[in-house]
Amino acid sequence: MAEAKTAPDTGAKPAAAGDNSVSLKTLYHDMLLIRRFEEKAGQLYGMGLIGGFCHLYIGQEAVVVGMNAAQKPGDQVITAYRDHGHMLACGMDPKFVMAELTGRQTGYSKGKGGSMHMFSAEKEFYGGHGIVGAQVPLGTGLAFANQYRNNGRVSITYFGDGASNQGQVYEAFNMAELWKLPVVYVIENNQYAMGTSVERSSAETHFYKRGSSFNIPGEQVDGMDVDAVREAGLKAIGWCRSGKGPIILEMKTYRYRGHSMSDPAKYRTREEVTAVREKRDPIDHLGQKLIAEKLASEDDLKAIDRDIRQVVNAAAEFATESPEPAEAELYTDVMA
């Protein structure tokens, strides 16, 4: 599916971390960490330990892991509310992420943000936003700051197929191209916005073309193939870093779970979900490839899973044992 459409050949030589050096096995690990973390989050939600909205990233892991491998330290990430995967990929600690999900003092936002609103200044993760589309101008603003400072950094701005119809996305697109801002717009096209399929919401369903009236190039990528994502990410980030302005990557992906924990997902058939799970699962896919190419053994993969389960269980334990925020925190951080 990785149909390169109007992809620019940047010719930019990838360097440092933003290159092909991260091993496939590491990418496997990073995707599986997200998968297991999300499964655990779903479980804690079922137990009433996580409240409110909780949007799981299961099925989409290859997108954020592939992109992260293509980034360099200093590049910024911003996304919407389906954000746990993005945080884990950029190196945020699963313990503190889980503790935020359970609303504890040890969480990244001291328990005040929750699943949808987490940030890490240290890891250049800018949230965690609940209003569909709002992060797109914000991510464009991060790119503006990069250009202003001429610091060579790139903003990786994620949003969904549904968000792609918000007006502010196009206001941002126009400014980004007009001012040649270094921003990669990653459209995670998981084919649904809540219960609405892209066909029912979008006049143009090829989201990589959404920048065409602003002259922003775009490419469609198989978002279930982590290696394809990394390749596309390297090219796109290179394009931005070399001063050519914004670029769009449309990641064709799929979410296995409901929109949030409370979505019965009656708008698609069980067979549709099963088919993707069985035929296109990004983790299974890479696992098979690792074994086939003798880059890892069955036992290696089992060991990875075992280690990850330990990390995730420890995170859950930490998150359920940490204290709730002190009452005084109600009034802190409102203003500087």
Binding site: G103, G111, E324, P325, E329, V334
Partner: peptide
């Protein structure tokens, strides 16, 4: 209260 709504169960209650 004169604050944005916190997520944590105890703070939300407050």
């Amino acid at each position: 209260k004169d604050v944005p709504m916190p997520y944590a169960a105890n703070l939300e209650k407050l």
